[in-house]
Design a protein around this nucleic acid. Sequence first.
DNA 1: GTTTCTATATGTCAGCGACAACTATATGTG
DNA 2: CACATATAGTTGTCGCTGACATATAGAAAC
Lengths: 136, 136
Amino acid sequence: MHDNPSPGERCCERKQGGAGRGTLVEPAALAALLASAKHGYDLRRAITQITDGQIEADAGGLYRVLRRMEEDGFVTSSWAEGDSGPQRREYELTAEGLDLAADWIVHLRQRQHVAGMLADTIEASLTGDASSTTKP
Amino acid sequence: MHDNPSPGERCCERKQGGAGRGTLVEPAALAALLASAKHGYDLRRAITQITDGQIEADAGGLYRVLRRMEEDGFVTSSWAEGDSGPQRREYELTAEGLDLAADWIVHLRQRQHVAGMLADTIEASLTGDASSTTKP
DNA sequence: GTTTCTATATGTCAGCGACAACTATATGTG
DNA sequence: CACATATAGTTGTCGCTGACATATAGAAAC
């Protein structure tokens, strides 16, 4: 069993660190669930759609993330009944999951900002910008 | 020995995939090197400075990344001579490294965009926005 | 009957990010 | 002197990601 992380920093502060910081599929899955996607395969399509085709989530990874999120109490799942075709597992956000999504907003904005800063810095150096260090 | 990745997508398409997409310390290290930082310990401070204190690169990870980058031919290193204090390894960008930095600009802008899109999507759902699905 | 689509799942692998611990050199403080 | 601290580099472990493959099964299409 996992001890749930301290509130306010549920995302990216998981367990004892890890690659959680760099991940995209967890927030993408949350966004897709909020956009009323139900099961994994559908989430995958929703993620592609939401991100303008820029993220094509790996199916295996997505299912693993979903199960981890369920272990952590952010989603619940149940087998869909009375359905033709292969069985599908329907996911639902919990209250914890909603909080997690809110936390992700802050974190994603931060990531957005950092990525921009790094891109700016590299670009400025490559284009031979001297305005940040010297004033002519 | 590594086969160097196909040009034009040197970053985030490394080897056979991996967490390269989510990484921050490689572009941060490139930015720091471009900003005239020399050795690892200094790179670390430069990264913190460049990112407004938002990234405090792990020392161990940073050195490992630097050595991987050297293996891949993006930087070269040599022990600084005639120096008091502990030995330090000075890093220098190669032409390949410059190309890598240029690739990272594109990729970071993309990441910036995706992070923004996800944040917007989540935020819109959480605040009960219906403008994307319905028009009143 | 074989292919294709849907849907879930497992295995492997390199790598990242966070933690800790270790070796040294130099400097400052008691 | 001993000791702590700052600098500088290095190794180890751990959980997890992202990308690859592959396996499974039901249903529809050919």
